[in-house]
Each structure stands twice: as structure tokens, then as C-alpha cells.
Design a protein around this nucleic acid. Structure first.
Length: 330
DNA sequence: AATCTTACCAACCGCTCTACG
DNA sequence: GCGTAGAGCGGTTGGTAAGAT
């Protein structure tokens, strides 16, 4: 017993939209709005289309100020950054790129951006290996010194310190705002009503509540609600970003959150395949960290992992998560 | 010129979440 | 508290244009 279909499948048209259909839909919505009911809309205007299809057509194509194609370098960077930090939350990513739709960004990522990055990293990885053969490695990475050599240990490039060039590194309040914008619901409590399940801090001043509410409008609510599970197993609470902890502690926890976030790994297999994120054979040289460094020019703040305990925990989770792939790839 | 392959993108499908009765 | 309808999301598919053989 599945749920009832949203429309009569036999009597709706499928496939590409004709200019006439587009015109009908657009002029109706321009004049009357969607009326808050997509299901009923096609009947009102005499379109033999599913309501969902109408909604999609409007959102992805007919809506005013939609940009198609021609992604700029800056947009590429934003997409890469957000993808690595929050995964395939296309609607949230789209909310950061005015005029872009989630579908557009998703297509762009899957068909071009991913390959573009992969190609770039393959090239650089190859040239680094050549360099490594010429020059002995120098281990000046602090965390690398802390840890025993371990083929399962994530690439040190993953725990490179924040670049001072990174705007987030010097502006923690921006980072906090950004995270609030992303939903402000990072908790290890999966909606069971625990006090740490933060949707918007209860003690938020009304003005900030307003900012929060406004930001919610940028990214649809039910998408944001998924952020709780998105960042499961983390201790990050948005209160930290409002003075509960020091900036370094905040960043450390953020690093841990991102580092431990399984979603970060999902969909990034291509990076692993390319030996970018976890290339044990390449060691922990400073040269290796250029991998992340190069990547980090494209991505959201590289996670900062400040102590051994955090590293170890991350490693355990990472290993548990990654094991099948490592076994398979060896 | 014909065929095959690849890349791109619009649209669909099925699922989850939320609101409401 | 439960069931249902609608909205929204992310993954996937299918059509087509462009390029390669």
C-alpha cells in the first residue's frame, strides 16, 4: 500500500514543456501567484500537467531572475566549499547563490565541477609524486608528529590549520552567522527533545531571531531540519558560537564536526579515488599538505583538529566508516 | 555521411517533512 | 496522537546536441 499518487498519471502530460505551456503557467502565476496549492493549479489554468511538474518548471525555469549556465569562478568556489562542508544539500547551496536553482547546481556539480576538480587534483597529485621522488620529505606537521604512522589515518592535509587568508579564520562571527544561516541545528540529539537540539537559540534577542527567520527564508525549512542528522555525532551547539567557548574552541569543535561528518565523505569518493583526501602511501609530508592547501582555496575552512583526542576520535569514526573502501581498494 | 560515445540538462520519481483536520 | 495532503528535496533517468571515430 503506497500513498495515493498526487495526480492522475494517465491524464497528465509528461516530457518537455512547450512554449505555450510555459506561457500559460507564467502568466497565471504572475497574475495570481501560486495560490499555495500546486496540485490544484494545473486544473485552474487548463494544463494537463502534474502539480509537482508545474512547481518544478516554475522554480527551475520560469521564475524571474533565474540564471542558467555560465557559472563564475566565485560560484564554483562557493559550491565546492559548501559541498564539502554540508554535502549534497543543493537547496542550501542554491540559497547562497542568487539566481541559481538547486537543480542547476546539482547538474553543474555532477557533470562538470566534480570532473574539473578531479582533473586538477589528478594532475597536481601526479606532479607532487614526482617531486616526492626527487626530494626527501620533511615532517613539520604538528599532528603528523603526534601520531604513529597509520595507513588508515586520514591525510594530514585534512587537518591543516586554517589559512589566515580564509575569511572565516579571521571572522568568527561571520562563521557563526553562516552556520546560523545554514540552519543552526547542529546537535547529537536527533530530535528527541533534548535541550541541545537547537533550532534557534531560545535566548536569542528578537532582532537576531529576525535575522534567523530571514535566513530561514533563504533555505527551505524542512531542508534545514535535516541538518540535525547531517551533523550527527558532534557536540557542536550554536551557543558555542555566541560566546560559550573561545574562538579556538569553537573552531576546534567546528573542525571536529566537519571532520566527523559522514556526509562529507559521501559523494567525495572521487576525491579518495584520486588520492586526495586519504593517500596513506604519500605519507604526511608538508608537500602533501599542499594537496589540501590547493583544495582549500576552493573549499570551506579546512577542519581544525587541535588535539590528539579529537584526532583519535575522528580517526576511529573515519576508519569505521571507510573500512570497506580501504579493503576494496587494496 | 553514418554511427557511436560523451556531455549536458530538463524533468521525473520517490522519499521525507510539515501542516492541518 | 494519528492519518492525510501538499510541499520540497535529492537522486536518477531520458532526450538531445556535440564531438569522435
Amino acid at each position: 500500500m503506497g500513498r495515493a499518487p498526487c495526480c492522475d498519471k494517465a491524464n497528465v502530460k509528461k516530457g518537455p514543456w512547450s512554449p505555450e505551456e510555459d506561457a500559460k503557467l507564467k502568466s497565471y502565476i504572475d497574475q495570481n501567484g501560486t495560490g499555495g496549492n500546486w496540485i490544484a493549479l494545473p486544473q485552474k489554468i487548463g494544463l494537463r500537467r502534474c502539480g509537482k511538474s508545474c512547481r518544478l518548471r516554475w522554480l527551475n525555469y520560469l521564475r524571474p531572475n533565474i540564471k542558467h549556465g555560465g557559472f563564475s569562478e566565485e560560484e564554483d568556489n562557493i559550491i565546492c566549499s559548501l559541498y564539502i562542508s554540508i554535502g549534497s544539500r543543493w537547496s542550501i547551496i542554491a540559497a547562497q547563490l542568487p539566481g541559481r536553482t538547486d537543480n542547476d547546481i546539482k547538474n553543474y556539480w555532477n557533470t562538470r565541477l566534480k570532473k574539473k576538480l578531479l582533473g586538477k587534483q589528478r594532475k597536481e597529485h601526479h606532479s607532487r609524486r614526482l617531486n616526492c621522488l626527487k626530494q626527501p620529505e620533511t615532517k613539520n606537521n604538528t599532528i603528523g608528529n603526534l601520531l604513529p604512522p597509520d595507513p588508515y589515518w586520514p591525510d594530514q592535509s585534512m587537518v591543516a590549520p586554517l589559512s589566515t587568508q580564509d575569511p572565516w579564520a579571521n571572522d568568527h562571527s561571520s562563521l557563526g552567522k553562516f552556520l546560523m544561516k545554514l540552519g543552526g541545528r547542529f546537535s547529537d540529539d536527533h530530535g528527541s527533545g533534548g535541550s541541545s537540539n537547537l533550532q534557534c537559540p531560545l535566548d536569542y534577542p528578537s532582532t537576531q531571531q529576525q535575522i534567523y527567520d530571514n535566513s530561514i527564508n533563504l533555505a527551505p525549512i524542512n531542508c534545514l531540519s535535516n541538518m540535525g542528522s547531517q551533523f550527527q555525532n558532534t557536540q557542536l551547539d550554536m551557543h558555542m558560537l555566541q560566546g560559550g567557548l573561545t574562538d579556538n574552541q569553537n573552531l576546534a569543535m567546528l573542525g571536529k564536526m566537519v571532520f566527523n561528518n559522514p556526509q562529507r565523505l559521501e559523494g567525495l569518493e572521487f576525491l579518495y579515488d584520486a588520492g586526495m583526501l586519504n593517500d596513506s602511501s604519500a605519507g604526511t609530508s608538508s608537500a602533501e599538505s599542499t594537496s589540501w592547501g590547493d583544495m582549500s582555496s576552493l573549499v570551506f575552512p579546512p577542519p581544525l583538529v587541535p588535539d590528539y583526542e579529537v584526532c583519535q576520535q575522528a580517526m576511529l569514526q573515519e576508519c569505521a566508516f571507510e573500512e570497506p573502501r580501504y579493503l576494496g581498494s587494496q
